[in-house]
Design a protein around this nucleic acid. Structure first.
Lengths: 353, 353
DNA sequence: TATATTTGATTAAACGATTAATCACTTTGG
DNA sequence: CCAAAGTGATTAATCGTTTAATCAAATATA
């Protein structure tokens, strides 16, 4: 590659070969009618001259920039790196660039950020909504990654089934009294996970949900969750709805002298970076973000294509795919319930308590 | 805003006012010679018609896209959300969009990602290098955020002084035997922090550095650090070089029944999201990422402007600014050394509710 | 053989903003 | 009073690509 030189243009290739620039365009895009030989020659010349298409010119002519926006209203979300990585990868494979938008969690800033993306001419955007906030019609194709139970959702993990998996995992370890730890009642994702956990645990198991958001409203952010008292109260399982809460639970229990996993099991969701590094490492559910990103980009691409032709169509990319499965990653933070007999294979022996 | 309508163009404004499009361009950019009255009228018409400049057309004509690339080779870095947020904010304020590049930590992918950015016509890029890797001349202006001791560095936190602050903090708490926990000897940032810690602790305090990277090479990733043994050996302070290591240290100590901060103090760097949420919350040093991002964007903007005029100039943005100060955030994970007399000076607690 | 049809290429007009060159008028200056 | 300078606008070219319209020549059809 000849770095630093202004890259060759179609016109230059055309001049070098004595053909018209239209023919070069046709040959390179494979659209018009160009003889096979000439096409090959052009392609070769392009290679040799180090041709790089001008995105700006193409965008001006076609009205499409080949760029999509990524909107993470809650950018402080620790899952962000993984999502961004997955989206960027999928977008690059589909020929898109990814422009990021940030809103510091505030709605006003979010609107401004989206506006900036639109002014920059993004062809569409992928939005991971904040706690069930709705995205109105913004005149641009949108793909939404939230939860299968969200109306207008394009693609997402099967959070409910993830909950079921974790519920079964805890149940199989003999836990009979489990505390579910969530933050906000308004989050579709959290509700789905809670629902799944309850289903997976089954009706024989006592469970209760601790809403940390409510607790913090009265006791201040970062307050203690009082989990040691729960242990004293007979709880042996603590299933958090995302890893940050699991970490909070784990450290609080440890600080208060509760051994994990001997006296209590802790689990989370999302497999964030620290989950595998902490002692004990945290049992969690990993999202298949690569697949989700691919689906989102693909659906968005379709919506973009549609928006070119039929106007007035719904600009929200729909996808009838089932929720993408989550994967249980069993680590050290979950183990047999204290004083319980674990049914390794069958549930023939009920309990000994 | 009239959403959905194709936005007005300069030509349309010109037609509506019966002037030429050149005049409109001049009025809106303030460059040519336009009478004050006409200029005002044009500006008003632009407002009323909902004029939105076409970035594509402008890019085609001027050769500048108004977009910069953000390259985080180690995208799994948990600091990424904060960096991305800060850069996006600063870039937006300076009129730039931010295109992200990902490389999954692999050098080959990094080159490809940078290539994609260049093909997309970014005006420049901001790079946070991975563990002291060098960025070669890529024919595009670059700003580098790494460490003051890195050659070619544009702007960064004063990691060394951060280390000094933390060292003094620990010293003032009476710790006499401190274990410094780092990962890689190749990281400039980590070396700076280690150096600062040693200086801040002073020569009266015994300290030793644990290189987790070395340890993992022989014992496997995620292995135990053996910190409880260190406590038995008289160590009371554990100063990690970033929060993820601090968290690892904290949980390992807790799991092994060491009380933090009663028996041992733990500290980190970066103030990542979990540091304030964990029990006990982690004493750490916060980077002033907003300032860093502003400096980086500004320096990059200058380099971009330079690259337009003088060719052959160094394309790496230099900035003679001192390292940006870091801020000590004292939390619960550090306290007086077991059995030590504390000098009652620096005990400003963030959360002494 | 005269007329369609197909093939392979060219022409030229966009897309929307920027900008050097130009022009018609005033205003100044000597 | 006439040349020089200044003012406020217009003209027209340009950036690089796409694409509808056109065209010439070869091939097929009647």
């Amino acid at each position: 590659m000849n770095i630093g030189r202004p890259p060759a243009t179609m016109t230059e290739i055309a001049a070098a070969l004595g053909v018209s620039s239209a023919t070069v365009s046709n040959a390179l895009s494979g659209k018009g009618r160009v003889s096979a030989e000439l096409s090959a020659k052009i392609r070769q010349a392009a290679e040799e001259l180090g041709y790089v298409p001008s995105h700006a010119a193409r965008a001006l002519r076609t009205g499409r920039t080949g760029v999509i926006g990524l909107v993470l209203p809650d950018i402080s979300n620790p899952l962000f790196p993984q999502i961004a990585q997955a989206i960027e990868q999928a977008a690059a494979a589909a020929g898109y660039g990814v422009l990021i938008a940030d809103s510091r969690g505030e709605t006003a800033q979010q609107t401004a950020a989206i506006g900036r993306l639109i002014e920059r001419g993004v062809d569409g955007m992928i939005v991971v909504p904040r706690r069930g906030s709705r995205i109105g019609d913004i005149g641009t194709p949108v793909a939404i990654i939230d939860s299968p139970s969200t109306p207008g959702n394009t693609v997402s993990s099967d959070h409910r089934n993830g909950g079921v998996q974790m519920g079964r995992h805890l149940a199989s370890l003999g836990h009979r009294k489990v505390l579910l730890i969530a933050h906000s009642r308004e989050s579709n994702v959290q509700n789905d996970r809670i629902g799944g956990l309850e289903a997976g645990l089954g009706k024989d198991i006592r469970c209760e949900t601790l809403w940390v958001g409510d607790l913090e409203n009265s006791h201040g952010a970062g307050c203690a969750l009082g989990l040691a008292a729960r242990v004293a109260d007979g709880f042996t399982g603590f299933a958090a709805v995302y890893d940050l809460l699991a970490l909070r639970a784990l450290t609080e229990l440890q600080r208060d002298g509760v051994d994990v996993p001997l006296q209590a099991s802790v689990s989370g969701f999302d497999d964030l970076v620290w989950s595998s590094v902490v002692m004990p490492s945290i049992t969690t559910l990993r999202q298949d973000l690569a697949t989700i990103a691919e689906c989102a980009v693909e659906a968005l691409g379709d919506a973009i294509a549609d928006s070119q032709t039929a106007t007035g169509d719904p600009l929200v990319a729909r996808q009838n795919r089932e929720g993408v499965p989550m994967m249980l990653v069993a680590r050290q933070s979950t183990g047999p319930a204290a004083g319980a007999v674990v049914s390794a294979v069958s549930n023939a022996r009920e309990d000994s308590r």
